[in-house]
């Protein structure tokens, strides 16, 4: 495993709205190595996207980072000026947004937009930038790039536009790529294409990838480590094997259980997590998952549990892991998930 390129330590981000402080992120820490792909999963409103925007320092008013550290290649990103951040964005850290239609400018040709990115970060002529752009188009699998360069975003299909966005994000060969739900709006066939592309690029360019998604299937295909978020906290973090086969947090287990399994029987019911995520405006003192948790205890109501380290690189925030707590049986034994082995 390579060096740590990004490290978040106790990051806190809040939105100061007129009805009160919305604590979107309440102290999260994780890191990513060079060439590694990690997944951040969670429901909407759990703070996944705000984490990405905080790293990029792209939070909009009234959002504010109120504490913690973001270290990128040994430098604290929170102390950078706006100008310095601009040099880092796109050049060293790139981001792909969920909705490719709204993230491309409809009145400029796509060639124009990709060349703009290249010129912004490299001291090269427009001609050279164009050659580079054509290369990028080829890399992400867009045929006849010379012709395609002169077309407008609306002439591309959804999958093509997402490829373009990836091409644009990679045009300066960033060390870190943040992909915020890159395949959510796409069909499964196109999703498979995009995932293959990202896997391939990770191998070839040694890019680190943070994949934000709510689809555990997508995570399983690409990532080696998973961070599970719930209402602004990291509920569990571990290797993909640990999360899928040996998860220790009731929320992670609930997420896994609510996906239909292959060995399904006709009348089987899906196991859902009842209730809805809490309102971030009036968060409870205790564990935010407590109202939906079937293993909740008295202490869960009063106090948020600390992180419990289960083994190296596997931690979970649940009182059930405390020495004095009654244990939950791991519901999913190894290989039991699809019941095939």
């Amino acid at each position: 495993m390579g060096e740590k390129i990004l490290e978040l330590r106790d990051l806190k981000t809040s939105y100061f709205t007129h009805i009160g402080e919305v604590k979107a992120i309440r102290g999260i820490s994780f890191h990513i190595h060079r060439g590694e792909a990690i997944g951040i999963v969670g429901e909407s409103g759990s703070g996944k996207s705000v984490t990405a925007l905080s790293i990029m320092r792209l939070l909009q008013h009234p959002g504010k980072i109120i504490g913690g550290q973001i270290t990128f290649k040994g430098k604290n990103l929170l102390q950078k000026s706006i100008k310095e951040m601009q040099c880092i964005r796109g050049n060293e850290i790139s981001m792909i947004f969920q909705d490719s239609m709204t993230s491309l400018n409809p009145v400029f040709t796509v060639g124009n937009q990709i060349i703009e990115v290249i010129l912004q970060h490299h001291k090269i002529s427009k001609k050279e930038a164009k050659v580079k752009a054509v290369e990028m188009f080829k890399l992400v699998g867009i045929s006849s790039p010379e012709k395609r360069m002169n077309q407008y975003p609306h002439e591309f299909s959804g999958g093509m536009r997402q490829r373009l966005m990836i091409g644009m994000a990679l045009s300066c060969e960033p060390t870190l790529l943040i992909a915020d739900e890159p395949t959510t709006a796409l069909d499964v066939t196109i999703q498979a294409q995009i995932l293959e592309l990202m896997k391939d690029l990770k191998k070839r360019l040694d890019t680190s990838i943070i994949l934000i998604t709510h689809d555990l299937g997508v995570v399983a295909a690409l990532c080696s480590r998973v961070v599970v978020m719930y209402s602004g906290l990291i509920m569990e973090e571990g290797s993909i094997e640990n999360i899928f086969y040996n998860s220790k947090h009731p929320y992670t287990q609930g997420l896994l259980k609510s996906i239909p399994k292959a060995n399904w029987k006709d009348k089987d019911k899906l196991i859902s997590i009842e209730g809805t995520p809490p309102d971030l405006l009036g968060l409870p003192d205790g564990c935010p998952f407590m109202p939906r948790c079937s293993y909740a205890m008295e202490i869960c109501k009063r106090e948020q549990s600390p992180d419990f380290e289960i083994e190296e690189n596997h931690r979970s925030m649940c009182w059930r892991l405390h020495d004095e707590a009654p244990k939950i049986e791991t519901w999913m034994k190894r290989g039991d998930f699809h019941g095939t082995k």
């Binding site: 299909s157 999958g159 093509m160 499964v188 066939t189 196109i190 999703q191 498979a192 294409q193 995932l195 293959e196 689809d215 555990l216 299937g217 997508v218 399983a220 295909a221 993909i240 094997e241 899928f244 896994l256 996906i259 290989g335 998930f337 699809h338 095939t340």
Partner: peptide, 25 residues
């Protein structure tokens, strides 16, 4: 192709399964 493109929420099976990719749109 549609079925093989389905993401499998199981990392071990996912690494074993072969995808039939449909090219193009």
């Amino acid at each position: 192709a549609l079925l093989s493109a389905m993401p499998i929420p199981d990392p071990r099976l996912a690494s074993k399964s072969r995808r039939i990719l449909i090219e193009g749109d």
